[in-house]
Amino acid sequence: MSLLRVRGLAIDYATKGGTLHAVSRGTLDVGAAEVVGLVGESGCGKTTLARALTGIVPRNATFMGGEIVFEGRDVLNGPPDAWRDLLWRKISFVPQSSMNALDPVYRVGAQMTEVLRLRGGMGRAEAATRSEELFAMVGLDPRRASEYPHQFSGGMRQRAAIAMALALHPALVIADEPVTALDVIVQRQVLDTLRDLQSRLGVSVLLVTHDISVVAYVCDRVVVMYAGEVIESGTTRAVLEAPRHPYTMGLTNAFPDLERAGGTLAPIAGAPPDLRAPPQGCRFAPRCPFAQARCRAETPPLTIDADGHASACWRSDEAAALAENAKDPSTWTLMSTSAA
């Protein structure tokens, strides 16, 4: 049984321009002690989906349906207090910018002990000891606990945010772009720390990122989102090496690989749809070089094969041939001349 099971999650935002369907078909699983990447481009709904798992959504957001089952309990359709009770203790969150995670006017150590005392019910002394442990665990000098967030570098702040997320032994850590603002060396060091702690503590991690390289480096499984929908998921190897959805194929092509020589990057023509009025049928069809009449009329369901590799594409039976075709940049260029 998976630790977290999300099915058909739908979240709308009320905006000035009308209702925006930020997440329409949010379906994913996170197993015990597993690192799952949630990948997609800006505006695809990955952050909305990930944040929704904590029950904390912006004021203008509404849950429109679906289920969020954590440890066998449907928290979305259960009592709100039960969900809130899971926060920090069972589910914790590392936000996108660690500057936002830490309050600038309080010492870093004080913010840590606050979590331990208020949410963990620890006494002052116990919280102080645990706080020191946590600092050391993420590679921070415990003596710096008395400093303010601005005295920390970006990497140190991100380490502090990770330490805080791990403070009360949660089962699931949701990390929203935890390394995006960091330099490449620091990014690598923070990812190594995260992965090391994850395997030592047996915690599950849902890592939200736009960076396929980060997914490839740390994730066991990956879930790909496009225009508010989950369009592919499976083991990192299966999704990156044998993608079934043309969007995933396009995304892997557009990504430079330092070890692969030269070549031309192929952009995906066009732009993601306006989620206030998403297109009928497959939402990727207007940009897809392989789209057929059916794709523009009917929404393809997310179907899962025996290996647990899921994709939402009418042509997933031909995936191997399409993927071969997709490697040729001209497949995508031809599109761009007709659709740009």
Partner: peptide
């Protein structure tokens, strides 16, 4: 050398060896 070793690659098979760096900022 450290900078190049730190760049993650968009594929599953890649080295995850420690970076050739001493701790320091």
């Amino acid at each position: 050398k450290a900078l190049i070793a730190a760049v993650p690659l968009p594929r599953v098979t890649q080295t995850r060896d420690p970076l050739p760096l001493r701790p320091g900022t």
